[in-house]
Design a protein around this nucleic acid. Sequence first.
DNA 1: AAAATACGTCAGCTATGTTGACTTATATTG
DNA 2: CAATATAAGTCAACATAGCTGACGTATTTT
Lengths: 157, 157
Amino acid sequence: MPETTPRFDLIELLFFAYRDFTDDPDVLLNELGYGRAHHRVLHFVHRNPGIRVSDLLGILKITKQSLGRVLKQLVDEGYIEQQHGPLDRRERLLFTTDKGRLLAQQLSQLQTKRINKTIELMPPGSDEIVRQFLYLMIDENDRNDVVRLISQSTTKE
Amino acid sequence: MPETTPRFDLIELLFFAYRDFTDDPDVLLNELGYGRAHHRVLHFVHRNPGIRVSDLLGILKITKQSLGRVLKQLVDEGYIEQQHGPLDRRERLLFTTDKGRLLAQQLSQLQTKRINKTIELMPPGSDEIVRQFLYLMIDENDRNDVVRLISQSTTKE
DNA sequence: AAAATACGTCAGCTATGTTGACTTATATTG
DNA sequence: CAATATAAGTCAACATAGCTGACGTATTTT
């Protein structure tokens, strides 16, 4: 006798929705020999031009060694550039190149198309409800960071 | 100049929400030496008692070899049982044991708690909007299968 | 009797995560 | 200024969970 009735509907909808949501970019990435790890790195660099390596590690919650592997590939193949920090030369600030920006845009466009097709079929104001739901599903401690990330990002389109 | 304005807010909220949503079970699973792959197998067997191996492969969209590895562990350690199909003895129908059922319930309870805490903070009717959103985010071809899975599952609580 | 199906298994590969130890360059601090 | 701390990179070794390809066994279908 469980204390709470399980929400199998939402649990399973989240599983399948997220699977298909990430599948669109995966197809394109695989053609380039990249995986989801490259996508995440490229995405957050694109969204936070000049981000420090250690801050990127904090967002992705992976180790320096894991990041290093995919970041090196993206730099070697001209998707991401590194610059010394102007105030602290130990820092290697990360920027997308034109090539990287283009790929990041293509990838987010695939995901945006799926989102827009969905929202169009729903009553007005639904996107605000969905945003609120997803926001509240995030760990309380991390919510402020996420809001800052989303609103303060300086992506140029 | 992109054709559509990117929905970075929803893209990133989905990323972080899904990350934390799966993190609750991950903590418990790691203590048992299991990973997310075991969770998925246990979950769908729990929800579809007597499911055939090939149908489970269809839901998870992984290969027989990948499934075999984790399924073998779950069977060896007494979480899942196999029975010959009554009509077709080639089939090995999958069932959770009492031990498996208990673990599956604990895992879904962790996720349900996060969902309930979220829904409680939102206006009435929000869960229906969220369900609809997630449903429409699924590939059109797969939606019927998912609905059948969710409504027709015979989980006993 | 032959072919197809359901499932399992062996071998080896890839992607992406992990720990631990160490180096280099640069900044901060006593 | 010398010592220490920090930012980042790298080497080596390992684990998990996906993959392909090939093959075996039991059972059902044709």
